[in-house]
């Protein structure tokens, strides 16, 4: 079964009004189970819009979105995915642990189970010692890790990420990238990852989907094979070749 199928989707904002904006035109995208796909493109190319369509936060003007074999709206109601945005978006009045528990709470998971799950997720992102802290007491990178733990808490088969590391410094960013890959490998999660960093896209993804603006559409889909996804991988010739390839695809 495929994690995501986007079939002939077009999205027009403010349809029929004078400020009508065609955001996406005839987009087709398939994400296989366990696949890591990055969406990359200049601002305004509709990559975030595409992610929001998959998440059913907005509805397509035409075409269909299928997540885990179901319509996107049903998949959202059944919480088939976890989502993380560029802003960590933690609830400042909840401790780190209770932030991670939030999606479980809304699912009606029992208190003991919630707690255990949250501890496990915080362990995974390396923040077990900060469970009792409030978000205001954490650095930006730590907050983002909490947001990822929160997205993973329901153990969704699909992870949607909208520039989750965009606001972080380079060192933190690279460390979190490795952590994310480890988590995805461990849990077998399929991932759709929006970014505007070519290096990040190549390092993380099995496939980089290149988009262009006005109207937003997919212009290339580049498979990435790296010998390894670690420090050595970042220095492999294949890595630099793929970066060049993606860059050229973005230019054309």
């Amino acid at each position: 079964m495929t994690a995501v199928v986007v079939d002939n989707v077009t999205k027009v904002f403010n349809r029929g009004r004078s400020d009508e904006v065609p955001a996406l035109t005839d987009v087709n995208l398939t994400v296989g189970d366990g696949e890591f796909v990055s969406l990359i493109g200049p601002s305004g190319c509709g990559k975030s819009t595409l992610l929001r369509l998959i998440a059913d936060l907005i509805e397509p003007t035409s075409g269909t979105v299928t997540v885990a074999g179901r319509p996107a709206s049903q998949a959202r109601r059944e919480q088939e995915y976890g989502i993380a945005f560029q802003q960590a978006g933690l609830f400042e009045w909840r401790t780190v642990r209770r932030n991670v528990e939030l999606p479980l709470e809304l699912r009606g998971v029992s208190k003991a189970e919630r707690r255990a799950k949250a501890e496990e997720m915080l362990e995974l992102v390396g923040l077990a010692d900060f469970a009792g802290h409030y978000p205001g007491q954490l650095s930006g990178g730590m907050q983002q890790r909490v947001a990822i733990a929160r997205a993973l808490a329901v153990q969704p088969p699909l992870l949607l990420m909208d520039e989750p590391f965009g606001a972080l410094d380079e060192m933190t960013r690279e460390r979190l990238q490795s952590e994310l890959l480890g988590i995805c490998a461990k849990t077998g999660t399929s991932t759709v990852f929006v970014t505007h960093s070519i290096a990040e896209a190549v390092f993380l993804s099995g496939r980089v989907v290149v988009m262009s603006a006005r109207p937003g559409r997919i212009t290339a889909s580049i498979e990435v094979e790296l010998p390894s996804r670690d420090e050595a991988g970042r220095q492999a010739p294949a890595y630099f070749e793929k970066i060049t390839e993606v860059r050229q695809a973005l230019r054309s």
Binding site: L57, E78, Y81, F85, G89, L102, L106
Partner: peptide
């Protein structure tokens, strides 16, 4: 972002009111 997050959790108006 917070409102979208609640929507992604399939939380309706009432639960969004109470939790967020």
């Amino acid at each position: 972002g917070g409102v979208e997050l609640m929507r992604s959790y399939a939380a309706g108006w009432w639960r969004t009111l109470v939790k967020l």
